[in-house]
């Protein structure tokens, strides 16, 4: 008898389908440009973009180094700030009530609107860029951690109390491991924000970094280089997300075992 149950697509299919989609899009893009449907000065072809990427690889690597430094520094501080904020909000109800709406409101302020102010206040150095990244990355981490801490079964807390556990033991043994899953979801989002945040902050002032490079090539109408740097930014974001995935596998080995 036929069954309507949906089965999980095979691993090969999971890789082949999106790869084929991207390949088709690239071929169509290449053809559209080569056949002159879109003027070449407006849209470079994929081969021109790859060529620009290869030609400028050393320059791009130097700018990317600055951007990565800002992103990693900002992300690390953002995670630390998010962690402390989440712990305090979980531990003290008053802090939660006081800061929960403020944190949410802070995320409605567009990054591009704050960036010039930060440049004005902190100059063109590393500080305003790192601050902007901290502001954008701490939110997903704080929110996911608070939600993770609160997701713990109250019966589990009662059970720990019957064992005579202190608040600190309940936190380290139960709450923190329970929040890890949501923490890594938040960290994955923060990782992408970190690179994008760094680039945005570089647009508005600075001497080095992919955002600075991007502004320069845009002003010289070198769109093939512009696309090259966009691809590099995407690759860096993907790389950072992959690193978060690896970190998750190391920190949560129980998540990847086969259940009974």
């Amino acid at each position: 008898m036929a069954t309507n149950r949906l089965s999980e697509p095979s691993r090969t299919r999971q890789i082949a389908v999106p790869t084929a989609t991207v390949a088709i899009l690239l071929v169509v893009w290449e053809l559209v440009v080569r056949m002159g449907f879109v003027p070449n000065f407006l849209l470079p072809s994929p081969t021109q973009v790859v060529s620009a990427l290869v030609t400028d690889v050393q320059l791009l690597a130097s700018h990317a180094g600055t951007t990565i430094l800002e992103a990693v520094l900002g992300l690390a501080i953002g995670v630390a700030v998010g962690f402390v904020a989440a712990v305090l909000m979980d531990r003290f109800e008053t802090i939660y009530l006081a800061f929960d709406p403020l944190i949410t409101i802070s995320q409605t302020i567009p990054t591009v609107a704050i960036a010039p102010l930060l440049v004005l206040w902190f100059g063109y150095g590393l500080a305003p860029k790192v601050i902007l990244i901290v502001l954008t990355t701490f939110f997903p981490v704080a929110v996911s951690l608070v939600s993770g801490f609160r997701s713990v079964d109250p019966d589990m807390i009662d059970l720990m109390r019957t064992m005579g556990a202190s608040d600190l033991q309940i936190f380290t043994q139960v709450k923190l491991p329970a929040a890890l899953d949501q923490f890594f979801s938040g960290l994955r989002i923060s990782a992408t924000y970190a690179i994008v945040g760094a680039v945005i902050s570089e647009w508005l002032g600075g001497f080095n970094g992919l955002g600075v490079y991007m502004t320069r090539v845009r002003k010289s109408f070198a769109y093939d280089r512009m696309f090259a740097v966009i691809i590099l930014i995407s690759l860096l974001s993907l790389l950072l997300m992959k690193l978060v995935d690896l970190l998750e596998r190391v920190c949560m080995p129980w998540k990847h075992v086969e259940g009974k």
């Binding site: 079964d153 019957t162 491991p177 949560m252």
Partner: peptide, 16 residues
């Protein structure tokens, strides 16, 4: 609390 053992219908084993 802390003197007698308590067990619920859920096993409450910590997954981690």
């Amino acid at each position: 609390p802390g003197s007698v053992s308590y067990m619920l219908q859920k096993d409450l084993l910590i997954p981690s």
